[in-house]
Design a binder for these strands. Structure first.
Lengths: 252, 252
DNA sequence: CGCTCTGTTGACATACTTCAAAATACGTGG
DNA sequence: CCACGTATTTTGAAGTATGTCAACAGAGCG
């Protein structure tokens, strides 16, 4: 069974068989099983090696001195984190599991080896990082510009799409492991209002959400109410070839 | 005169003389002068080479279909952008000048050459990228958790600190090229409320802001009202040495 | 079967927005 | 250097999206 990381990376471009088997091997070399709701890495603490989430959900979050907490991103199987850990002297944010999870800890020389022996893989890793940044930017845009309802619709679209791209969605349904309180922390709103916003979306026949399972009843309309444009999830194009820049829209 | 990029990168770690002169040379090889308020790169359009902002201010922003605009980050002299442009097939956001600006376009093989001939420089480039991500995360945290007053205080602290670290602040003063409308777009609030928030901060004797010049009258108190912790601007430590991970705060 | 966590509801409060207009600064051409 | 048009800042009054508080109802779990 091919791991979710592979599926994810292959979404960005081709990966030859040798690279694929090497990656699959690396990813099962050193796996830790974790209970739900524990910190893997702590804001202010030391950094770690490159991690790959194999199974379960996790979050990246920041806390303010007074305890307010912002969930920066939701990590699902196939997601990598702390890719540049070796560069930082300490974490500016934390990583915690939401559910029971399995995490692969990659060897310290993983990136170096990939660079030398599997350049196609290395390229896809950078693509992944690039897309992660794009997701982060979209999140900022949500927080700054979208209304509560739009933000909610948007995060639902995003998490559905991301799961679908690693074969974790069945038809219009996928797992959904955020409590309403966690959703509130991700969307910069209050748990009570999250509840009301979800009810709005349900009443409008856009979604169904119960027992950790999200069903999208009308994707087109949900995307419309979210002002969702999924392009940011697939702006990468490792096959496009180096230097082959598209015509540049320079104003000057 | 050493360019701001060099100052910035040297903030992350040492850079030997050969790398410094090579960098300084690369950065003045192909410089474009731009008028204020023009797009350099357009959302949806093609990507470009690695850019370095030499002089003037610019912004990274995203627009929603209906015209709402979120300023994602403010670029000041020494900042680089589009570092991974070659990986993406299109831009998920735009870059525009705010003031008249000068921008260096680096050669397509800049990164490759740096990797081969100036590994110390390459490392600092990744550090820079890493810090940019941290800034982006802090921005999300602001948008999601901080009140209008806190967000305002925070962005003022950040822009002051960043300018200071490239010698662009004199005492407690620095340039400030955002209009109140732009400030509003960066902070996810309304221009009117930006105005009122600024007046609050002024009335409280925290800042002075007039004629594109910001003066911080009481940094300690401003940081306190912002819940500002400047560590995120200097989490990088290229000298720390590869593999020398600090003791890890694993919960498991 | 009782505890704790999560979801739901209602009434009320407020931080922030909206609209609209005046005052001030800013740039440009004459 | 002035005069005019445009962009920015400032002010006031009124509206609303979202937050707060508090209580209750289910669900999950040992």
């Amino acid at each position: 069974m091919t791991p979710h990381v592979t599926l994810k990376l292959r979404g960005f471009g081709d990966l030859n068989d040798a690279s694929q088997t090497w990656l699959a091997d690396q990813v099962q070399r050193n796996v830790r099983s974790l209970p739900p709701r524990v910190d893997l890495l702590c804001q202010g603490g030391g950094t770690g090696p490159l991690h790959v989430l194999i199974e379960g959900w996790a979050i990246r979050y920041k806390t303010l001195e007074d305890g307010r907490r912002q969930i920066l991103s939701v990590l699902i199987p196939g997601d990598m984190f702390d890719i540049n850990g070796h560069l930082a002297k300490s974490m500016d944010h934390s990583i915690a599991t939401l559910t029971p999870a399995r995490v692969a800890l990659l060897a310290d020389d993983f990136l170096d080896t990939a660079r030398k022996l599997h350049p196609d893989l290395e390229k896809l890793l950078w693509c992944d990082m690039h897309v992660s940044s794009a997701i982060q930017r979209e999140r900022s845009t949500s927080l700054g510009q979208r209304t509560a309802r739009e933000r909610m619709a948007h995060i639902l679209c995003e998490l559905f799409m991301r799961q679908r791209s690693v074969r974790l969605a069945e038809g219009g349904s996928c797992a959904f492991h955020l409590t309403q309180t966690e959703l509130a922390e991700a969307l910069g709103m209050t748990p009570v209002y999250v509840n009301r916003t979800l009810q709005d979306l349900r009443r409008d026949g856009l979604i169904q959400l119960e027992q950790k399972c999200l069903t999208i009843l009308d994707l087109t309309r949900l995307e419309a109410t979210a002002l969702f444009d999924g392009d940011y999830l697939k702006i990468c194009d490792a096959d496009g070839g180096a230097g082959a820049h598209k015509e540049n829209a320079h104003a000057f």
